[in-house]
Design a protein around this nucleic acid. Sequence first.
RNA 1: GGUUUCGUAGCUCAACUGGAUAGAGCAUCUGACUACGAAUCAGAAGGUUUAAGGUUCGAAUCCUUACGAGACCA
Length: 615
Amino acid sequence: MNIVQIIQNAVKQAVSELYNVEIAVNEVICNTTRKEFEGDYTVTVFNFAKTARKAPPVIGQELGAYLTEHVPTISKFNVIQGFLNLSISTDFWTNFVAETTKNEHFGQSPSKDTRVMIEFSSPNTNKPLHLGHIRNILLGWSCSKILEAAGYDVVRTKVVNDRGIAICKSMLAWQLFGNNDTPSVSEEKGDHFVGKYYVLFEGKFKTEYAVWQLTDTASSVYESKKKVEQTTEEFFKDFKNEYFNNYSDLGKQAREMLLRWEAGDAETRELWKTMNGWVYEGFNETYNKLGVHFDKVYYESDQYALGKDIIEDGIKKGVFYQKPDSSVWIDLTDVKLDHKLVLRSDGTSVYITQDIAMARLRENDFHARKVGYVVADEQNYHFQVLFEILKKLDEPYANGLFHLSYGMVELPSGKMKSREGTVVDADDLIEEVISEAKNAASESNSLDNFSADEKADIIRKIGMAALKYHIVKVNPKKRMVFDPKESVDLQGHTGPYIQYAYVRSKSVEAMAANAGVDFSITELPTELHETEKSLAISLYEFPKIIEDAAAQYDPSVLANYLYEIAKGFSKFWHDVPVLKANDVEKVFRLKLAKIVAHTLKQGMDLLGIEMPERM
RNA sequence: GGUUUCGUAGCUCAACUGGAUAGAGCAUCUGACUACGAAUCAGAAGGUUUAAGGUUCGAAUCCUUACGAGACCA
């Protein structure tokens, strides 16, 4: 049992015995003591003051006396106002360090016997990945790793949005203007290549639209449909979609292509396969650079027509109802949501229908009892609705659904807008952080002894750590402002700072081994330096931090914790000598350094960040 | 218009979910490399937690209102 739980249980016991009041264990507030006070853990006793009918300081004294008597690891206590500060005996911490060095799996929880599926990334095939996708991918990946460490059996999936009008636009533009060009001929990454044609389509369409606006047809449309006080400019801005659907030649061609695709036209399907193939090659390259992979990829094209049987099933169960125009709806007013359309009157499905179908498909494949979707918070409402519907349909995994909702990424200049060309491309960004790491490395000579390949690999790890840590340290729920310049910072609260602490801890270990330190010494120090103790206390929390991060689906909890450890170690490094200490202290401090190294490496791995052995 | 999330140092983020004097990093200023590695450490300065009320032993955190920003739904 964890020391905090021991204290909580003992307090519960004490309150029951001393005051005849029954409280729940989790009502006992027990935190680490702030550093300006003496003690390791602090119990807040105000809560019991009312029911026990005594002044908080008195209760503190009485509880303190009880705890030091009944819990052997508590050596002494002091009371300030309603705060009971408890000191844990030194040998508890030294033993913790000695035992943990033997535990190669420190931080890994035992199996929870539960499968969890986590869906992330889920890109469209018409444009390359950008900064927003990077946040999604890093969150999804690190959550999946953290859940694994917390004892879950994790399945990673993505759903590729590979069909629809958007990809038809790219296909059409390539057909019309591509001259049979290919990514390999033009030496472009496949996803960028296809994205280029999407942009090209939009450009051509815009020109076509502008020309049309000068025609008589356009004028008469404007005159007959304009709202009061609406300028031509405003009107045509709003009218764009309608123009695309009803007047545009390019729009007509794109829609015809979509119809041919849906009809299964061989030539169209062939082109579609080829172009999506290029995109996947490009995506995979980016996924590899980010160090992520998936266990199962689903394609929207495989299942977009599914879901109708589910609708019928739902109508039979009385979950859905049909209107006279034969459209199908669900009434969610009982959970404070609206009536929601699940099947159009023409029998075509809507987004949510496909999501229901997808959920069932994956249930058949994996039987996961927890299912998470990593999707930006603009879709909060959508997932609320989806989850309610799945609950009403009584799906077996319905109670384990969660939406890992994250805030959008903004630039210092505001939102990213593809139209204004302010989108930060994923591949560009990766390249940039690595080249920045290279600049920094060239200023020091610490990498001089390495081969060019080794050097490049270390620099890549440092650059990627800067980028990934910068993103993953922010609470997912919050919108974040991303300044590309800051993402390549290598000092302070950053990934490379943590890597540096790790590298130093490994280097002391190596030096100790070279110096022939006698590791067989089992004697432990009887007193601890302040920085040793606070480091030990922090390290002790590692398993709990992983559990917390897993429970909240929040990697930033772990990221910030690892920074604390690295910081604690850096201070320790400066404050206390290791190799020059006496034998008992030397061996103990090396053990402490070993646990730091283990914790940092494991922890960063859960964030998807690699550690260099030297830097 | 309705629903909803958010507002913390100049900037980017924390605050153990209601606990002690709101903490870090960057930027600014000052110290520490002939030292187990200076991508480091120590220190200074920086705050009426958007504003006003309320709840209580105790509020950045909960409630109400206003202002500001974002998202979704028609």
